[in-house]
Amino acid sequence: MPLWSRAQQQEFRGRVRGCLLGGAIGDALGAGIEFEPLEQIRAAHGPQGVTGFVPAYGRRGTVTDDTQMSLFTVDGLIRAHISRDGGAWHPPSDVHRAYLRWHATQHDWGPDERRPDLGWLGREEWLYAQRAPGQACLSGLSGPDADRLGTLDQPRNPHSKGSGTVMRAAPFGLLTAWDPALVFQLAVECSVLTHGHPTGYLAAGAFAVVIHAVARGGTLEEGVHLALALLSERPRHEETTAALRAALDAVRAGAPSAERVEELGEGWVAEEALAIGLYCALVAEDVKSGLLLAVNHSGDSDSTGSICGNLLGTLHGETALPPELVAEVEGRGTLLQLADDFVLELVHGPELHSAAHWTERYPVGV
């Protein structure tokens, strides 16, 4: 790992915070209108659709399974880096165990204090809530063989390409010291833990690569072209490649609109969710306008908002996020704490691994 200057650490921290918090804001903006057709959204909220948070799951600013699973992705990646000290280095296994801990939040009343593996994130009681989780995410992590690791050769849910595979993939792109091809591969290997259709796991890989390029200081366009190059080397990439190209074409087609968003699909499947989130980030005049464009359509509004928020938050950093939305989004303290811990692990990991406090927060080997 190269030495980080103070300025580099501060910039990286702002991008990581922006990625997680931006994704949560986009998720929460879409949560209250997910499943609603565009005409109904406009009838209820005006011709522009929603312009801020609307109630979902009993309050404003509520996040869904998209944010929940993204948080557990980060938790798994932190533990993977700690595990490397002990000679164990297989990040998909650590991420799989993190997703199993997320799965417990979907059926348990609260954290089981008898489980030493939960760490601090697994003891956050607000996460113990079902927020319309995808069936492939649930079924891929349950049943008598729930502990079996899905692999490319034997993926879980081999016919599923739902958006649940891509909406949790942004954290892989924050591994800025990694080669882009390795980031792509890791996102793919962690996607098949629940979604085995090639379009699903390749969309997750492509999204991670775009985030990676931006987190390194590049542009969204540079990230897309790199993702297209990596996709071209993979079998059955055609649907994902076509979706990315459609997003680029939509940028050149004219003024942004909800109708243009809907030409890219509804977002229930991975490649459509990625295309919509990416298009809205590419045409955004500012973070808030991009997020509102990403959620005001007929379809999977929370997932497309989350993907757009991940992209814009990584691109512009935490300070560019709309303060009135930052202040109200659910779980902000947890999101920012986890983002900071992720940065600490990547920048100062070896110095932390002998500290009992750190390994209690992120226990490995249990």
Rank of each mutant, 00 (worst) to 15 (best):
residue 164 G to T: 12
residue 12 F to R: 00
residue 246 A to G: 14
residue 191 S to C: 15
residue 287 V to W: 09
residue 178 W to M: 15
residue 47 P to S: 13
residue 249 D to A: 15
residue 293 L to W: 04
residue 134 G to D: 06
residue 294 A to Y: 03
residue 256 P to W: 05
residue 94 D to Q: 15
residue 122 G to Y: 09
residue 336 L to G: 02
residue 336 L to H: 04
residue 35 F to E: 00
residue 168 R to G: 04
residue 39 E to H: 13
residue 131 R to E: 05
residue 214 V to W: 00
residue 11 E to Y: 02
residue 361 R to K: 11
residue 4 W to L: 12
residue 176 T to W: 10
residue 278 L to G: 09
residue 104 A to K: 09
residue 214 V to Y: 01
residue 124 E to P: 09
residue 86 G to I: 01
residue 335 L to N: 01
residue 314 T to R: 09
residue 54 V to T: 14
residue 79 R to A: 11
residue 24 A to N: 14
residue 35 F to G: 00
residue 169 A to T: 08
residue 51 T to K: 04
residue 242 A to C: 04
residue 293 L to N: 01
residue 301 S to N: 15
residue 285 E to A: 12
residue 224 V to F: 02
residue 228 L to T: 02
residue 55 P to D: 15
residue 51 T to M: 11
residue 357 H to Q: 13
residue 182 L to A: 15
residue 236 R to V: 03
residue 128 Y to T: 08
residue 165 T to R: 01
residue 269 V to F: 10
residue 105 T to I: 07
residue 61 G to L: 07
residue 180 P to W: 01
residue 298 S to G: 15
residue 55 P to R: 15
residue 83 S to G: 13
residue 268 W to L: 05
residue 53 F to H: 08
residue 269 V to W: 09
residue 17 R to I: 03
residue 142 S to N: 10
residue 154 Q to L: 10
residue 69 M to K: 10
residue 222 E to S: 00
residue 295 V to C: 04
residue 282 L to F: 06
residue 50 V to K: 07
residue 119 G to F: 04
residue 124 E to W: 07
residue 138 L to Q: 11
residue 161 K to I: 08
residue 184 F to P: 02
residue 111 P to T: 13
residue 243 A to K: 04
residue 22 G to A: 00
residue 129 A to H: 07
residue 249 D to G: 08
residue 216 R to Y: 08
residue 355 A to L: 15
residue 108 D to W: 08
residue 198 P to C: 11
residue 286 D to G: 01
residue 273 A to I: 03
residue 237 H to I: 01
residue 327 A to R: 12
residue 150 G to C: 10
residue 133 P to D: 02
residue 255 A to H: 12
residue 201 Y to D: 01
residue 65 D to E: 00
residue 334 T to A: 13
residue 252 R to W: 14
residue 293 L to T: 02
residue 14 G to T: 02
residue 219 T to E: 09
residue 9 Q to D: 11
residue 216 R to V: 02
residue 113 E to G: 13
residue 151 T to L: 07
residue 190 C to Y: 04
residue 44 A to V: 08
residue 171 P to C: 07
residue 47 P to F: 11
residue 132 A to E: 05
residue 315 L to D: 07
residue 15 R to K: 15
residue 216 R to C: 12
residue 267 G to V: 11
residue 135 Q to R: 07
residue 108 D to H: 08
residue 302 D to G: 03
residue 244 L to Y: 14
residue 125 E to W: 10
residue 108 D to I: 00
residue 268 W to V: 01
residue 196 G to H: 08
residue 337 Q to M: 06
residue 363 P to S: 12
residue 82 I to W: 14
residue 269 V to M: 12
residue 141 L to N: 11
residue 58 G to Y: 07
residue 312 L to W: 02
residue 156 R to D: 03
residue 354 S to T: 05
residue 48 Q to F: 13
residue 221 E to A: 11
residue 329 V to M: 12
residue 263 E to S: 13
residue 47 P to K: 10
residue 240 T to E: 14
residue 147 D to V: 03
residue 85 D to R: 12
residue 64 T to K: 06
residue 123 R to P: 13
residue 191 S to E: 12
residue 206 A to L: 03
